[in-house]
Computed example of a mutant assay.
Amino acid sequence: MSGEAAFRRIADDIRRRIGAREWAPGQALPSRANMAREYHVHEQTVRLAYNELRRDGILDGEKGRHVTVAHPPAMRTLTDVDAEWPYATETTDTRPRRASDDLAERLGVAPSTMLQHATVECLEPGGRSAMLVLSWWRGRRRNHASYAAELGVARLGEEHAHALGLLVDAMAYRVVRTRLDVHGAPVETADLLLPMDRWTIRL
């Protein structure tokens, strides 16, 4: 069995054992050395399994130290799609890109117009990603007077699924938010991607 297959198998088994309440939320798991002996693998393989489970929000703890079973994520309710995120954020992509037909229609520009872009990861106090905000605008960012929002769902590709700690092709809420100036013209549009297991939407 390859190293990659082994660490994924171990990660899946640890998930099963946590689900069976072998370890409770907040309880430390055995050390990597002990787990390596139990699973008959190298410590590095256990480290990879722990890292994957940490990324997926199953485990908490710093690299190189004991890890604990994470408490279930808090459910949040989205009521104002234009509110500032109250915790830390991380901007992960600012590459300009050309407007697709959809973005061109949302912003009232010609297709292939060069747009400014930002992908912002909104983080929970514990550091786990709560949602992604992908924004596009033309020229300088301008103030807005109002906004319009539409709720739907989206199937996540590899990049966005990885950022949110979800499986590729998982479904997430997708809120399309378009900010408008005083005349009702669009100045910015955004996709808010929210994991369905962490959010309730009330617009």
Rank of each mutant, 00 (worst) to 15 (best):
72 P>M: 01
35 M>W: 02
51 N>F: 07
23 W>Y: 11
25 P>K: 03
25 P>G: 03
67 V>S: 06
16 R>N: 12
79 T>V: 12
84 E>C: 07
60 D>A: 11
33 A>K: 13
58 I>F: 03
39 Y>M: 12
83 A>H: 07
25 P>W: 00
17 R>H: 12
32 R>V: 14
57 G>T: 02
15 R>V: 10
65 R>F: 15
11 A>K: 03
19 G>F: 00
35 M>S: 07
64 G>R: 06
18 I>F: 01
26 G>H: 04
80 D>M: 08
67 V>L: 06
53 L>E: 02
45 T>R: 00
71 H>E: 11
17 R>K: 12
77 T>F: 02
33 A>P: 06
72 P>V: 01
74 A>W: 08
72 P>D: 00
78 L>N: 06
72 P>H: 00
31 S>V: 03
74 A>N: 11
68 T>Y: 07
11 A>H: 06
56 D>Q: 14
28 A>C: 05
46 V>G: 02
56 D>A: 14
69 V>M: 01
23 W>K: 08
47 R>P: 06
66 H>F: 09
68 T>H: 11
64 G>Y: 05
47 R>Q: 11
54 R>Q: 06
82 D>F: 01
73 P>C: 06
36 A>P: 02
16 R>S: 11
48 L>A: 11
80 D>C: 07
70 A>T: 03
44 Q>R: 13
56 D>I: 04
60 D>K: 15
14 I>L: 15
71 H>S: 10
53 L>R: 01
44 Q>D: 14
28 A>I: 05
21 R>K: 14
13 D>A: 00
13 D>C: 02
11 A>S: 10
36 A>S: 10
22 E>T: 13
48 L>Y: 15
34 N>W: 07
54 R>V: 07
73 P>H: 02
40 H>L: 11
64 G>E: 05
80 D>P: 07
39 Y>R: 09
76 R>S: 07
11 A>N: 06
15 R>D: 09
85 W>K: 01
17 R>F: 08
72 P>T: 03
74 A>T: 15
71 H>I: 08
57 G>V: 01
33 A>L: 14
25 P>L: 02
59 L>T: 00
65 R>D: 08
60 D>V: 10
20 A>C: 12
26 G>Y: 04
24 A>C: 08
20 A>F: 11
19 G>E: 05
45 T>N: 01
42 H>V: 13
11 A>C: 11
28 A>F: 04
79 T>N: 06
46 V>Q: 03
51 N>M: 04
29 L>T: 00
52 E>Y: 13
57 G>R: 04
26 G>E: 00
24 A>H: 10
67 V>H: 12
66 H>Q: 13
78 L>G: 02
73 P>K: 06
62 E>H: 14
37 R>M: 15
37 R>K: 14
18 I>H: 00
76 R>Y: 05
31 S>T: 12
78 L>C: 05
81 V>H: 08
63 K>P: 10
23 W>V: 09
17 R>S: 13
66 H>T: 10
23 W>E: 03
41 V>G: 01
36 A>G: 04
43 E>L: 07
12 D>T: 04
27 Q>I: 03
24 A>L: 11
16 R>I: 09
81 V>C: 13
28 A>N: 08
59 L>P: 00
64 G>H: 08
51 N>T: 12
52 E>S: 05
56 D>E: 14
61 G>K: 05
70 A>R: 05
32 R>S: 12
73 P>T: 01
51 N>E: 08
15 R>I: 10
31 S>N: 10
39 Y>A: 06
22 E>V: 15
13 D>K: 03
17 R>D: 15
58 I>C: 09
